[in-house]
Design a protein around this nucleic acid. Sequence first.
DNA 1: GTCTATAGCCGGATAGAC
DNA 2: GTCTATCCGGCTATAGAC
Lengths: 196, 196
Amino acid sequence: MPKVSAAHREARRSQIVEAALQCFIHKGFQRTSMADIIEASGLSAGAIYLHFASKQEIASAAAQSVVGRRVGDIRDRLTQSPLPDPGQFVQLVMTGLATEVHDSRLLVQLWAESFFDPAMSQLVDGVFQRLRAVLVDYLAGWSAAERGLDADAARAWGERAAPAMLSLLQGHILQSAILPSFDTDAYADAVRAVLP
Amino acid sequence: MPKVSAAHREARRSQIVEAALQCFIHKGFQRTSMADIIEASGLSAGAIYLHFASKQEIASAAAQSVVGRRVGDIRDRLTQSPLPDPGQFVQLVMTGLATEVHDSRLLVQLWAESFFDPAMSQLVDGVFQRLRAVLVDYLAGWSAAERGLDADAARAWGERAAPAMLSLLQGHILQSAILPSFDTDAYADAVRAVLP
DNA sequence: GTCTATAGCCGGATAGAC
DNA sequence: GTCTATCCGGCTATAGAC
């Protein structure tokens, strides 16, 4: 059993991952070289390969740290009543999932990577599954409270509308990443315009 | 003035672009090497560099051919009355913009590339601008016809809701690219559930 | 455990024969 | 105009000193 190792190893790993994330933000996943990560981390090549077997493993760990960071928080925030309206809901989830523009850009890159990297693909699928479940619950609860549907009808409507609601979240990610003039409040308002 | 060149040159260029697109679909933008494009095109390295100055230029031309292919069609389809409902609208635009799953995957890659490649960025911005204008027009026309709003109110609502409608299109692209079980009709139904 | 130096490879782009 | 052969640079990962 190692002495300081357990905690120190983890600290070192996250130091590397954090440095990698900075590089990925500024240069993109593929364009980032190991030399970039080495320089940003302040460590040496040998030290890094002691903790990660390959660049791809670093990228995978970095991706997990982005999506896994606060994915548990989302559900917690939604157990509070009264339920937020859909506009607030989007802002709430986005605050928990991708506060910064940088995070949004990383997520879009992650989507693209997932087509060709099985590890990334698995990660993305998992998030989509969990997110979808949360959306159905929220939509069912909201439509029951707001529109007075009975439980079955509310759930059915939630299932039906979930893909569209998912898009409203994904669109927020994409638009905030791409459009320089993106405005969170205006976006929440747009959501309210379609889901009144 | 060249004799056969004008037409033949263009044919050769599109032959290269088409080969590149196949590679990008199967391996991704970055992972595709010039050797891949050379092999897929059936030409040689020298022949290709006679038509394109760099790999990036090929990628740029390929991206343009994906988004520019039928972008003009969209507007035409929307001048027909009666206006489709939002569910049909999404299907209509998607049919014009990205019929195949492959096209969707290329678009997602394009979004990610646009963060780091100015040429791609310009292309994406342009599409978003044009698309947004089309959306405002459609939403204004639809809400006027369906909900009996006067022209000013309809336009105001269209402007307000446009970002959300844009998300419904972007979400279609993303989900069809990522989710193996994606169902276009179910998606159109989800759109109708939120925009009745 | 950590660094430096480097092996080995593969990438994009070009030169020159035909 | 087109192909073959090749250059050079940068990449990832490792070997070996400390």
